Amino acid sequence: MASIEELANTLRRVATSGMKPKALLAAVREKYPEATKKEVIRAAFYALAESQSGDHSELHSFALAERCGDEDDPVRAAKLRRKKKDRQTEPEVQAPH
């Protein structure tokens, strides 16, 4: 398993202007095929946080765009349930003044 530093260094080397997130992920997986998408995303954030100089907008957009989901854990919309009303009690009726 590759360390986060190794993945971050690879990301810095392969990232080019206008590179799509899928292409960036594929480029990293060519060198580290066992790396998960989650690890690569974390390495992208790590590369951004640890970088001293340079424009890493590709890494930034990749990390932000891909952080929501993981290939192992698909994001599913949850259904909201309505609260059940207490049907045993009747609403109070106020007498007119």
Rank of each mutant, 00 (worst) to 15 (best):
residue 58 E to D: 04
residue 72 D to N: 12
residue 34 E to W: 11
residue 46 Y to R: 06
residue 40 V to N: 00
residue 69 G to S: 07
residue 57 S to P: 01
residue 60 H to W: 10
residue 67 R to L: 00
residue 63 A to W: 01
residue 74 P to N: 06
residue 45 F to N: 04
residue 65 A to R: 10
residue 66 E to S: 03
residue 62 F to L: 04
residue 38 K to E: 14
residue 43 A to Y: 03
residue 58 E to H: 03
residue 29 R to N: 14
residue 73 D to Q: 10
residue 61 S to T: 13
residue 43 A to V: 07
residue 69 G to I: 00
residue 71 E to C: 12
residue 31 K to D: 04
residue 75 V to W: 06
residue 30 E to W: 01
residue 60 H to G: 05
residue 50 E to G: 03
residue 56 H to T: 09
residue 69 G to E: 03
residue 34 E to D: 15
residue 72 D to H: 09
residue 63 A to N: 02
residue 38 K to I: 02
residue 66 E to D: 03
residue 61 S to D: 07
residue 61 S to L: 08
residue 72 D to V: 03
residue 43 A to C: 09
residue 34 E to P: 01
residue 57 S to V: 01
residue 62 F to M: 00
residue 79 K to N: 09
residue 55 D to K: 06
residue 77 A to K: 15
residue 46 Y to A: 07
residue 61 S to K: 12
residue 73 D to L: 08
residue 64 L to N: 03
residue 67 R to F: 04
residue 54 G to I: 08
residue 26 A to E: 06
residue 64 L to I: 05
residue 43 A to E: 05
residue 44 A to C: 07
residue 74 P to R: 05
residue 38 K to T: 09
residue 52 Q to C: 07
residue 47 A to K: 07
residue 79 K to E: 14
residue 77 A to D: 08
residue 73 D to I: 14
residue 40 V to R: 04
residue 73 D to S: 08
residue 37 K to T: 14
residue 29 R to D: 06
residue 57 S to M: 07
residue 63 A to F: 00
residue 62 F to V: 02
residue 71 E to G: 08
residue 72 D to C: 02
residue 71 E to Q: 13
residue 76 R to D: 10
residue 49 A to H: 10
residue 62 F to H: 00
residue 41 I to E: 03
residue 48 L to P: 01
residue 53 S to E: 15
residue 49 A to Q: 15
residue 35 A to V: 14
residue 42 R to C: 12
residue 50 E to H: 12
residue 76 R to P: 01
residue 47 A to M: 07
residue 58 E to T: 12
residue 50 E to C: 11
residue 78 A to P: 01
residue 45 F to E: 06
residue 63 A to R: 01
residue 29 R to I: 13
residue 43 A to W: 03
residue 58 E to M: 06
residue 33 P to E: 13
residue 54 G to E: 14
residue 57 S to Q: 14
residue 76 R to A: 05
residue 52 Q to I: 13
residue 29 R to F: 12
residue 37 K to F: 07
residue 56 H to W: 15
residue 36 T to M: 09
residue 27 A to R: 05
residue 50 E to Y: 08
residue 35 A to D: 11
residue 64 L to A: 07
residue 39 E to V: 02
residue 72 D to S: 07
residue 60 H to S: 08
residue 26 A to K: 08
residue 35 A to H: 10
residue 44 A to N: 07
residue 62 F to K: 01
residue 42 R to H: 15
residue 46 Y to N: 10
residue 57 S to R: 14
residue 75 V to I: 12
residue 62 F to Q: 01
residue 38 K to N: 10
residue 63 A to C: 06
residue 70 D to L: 06
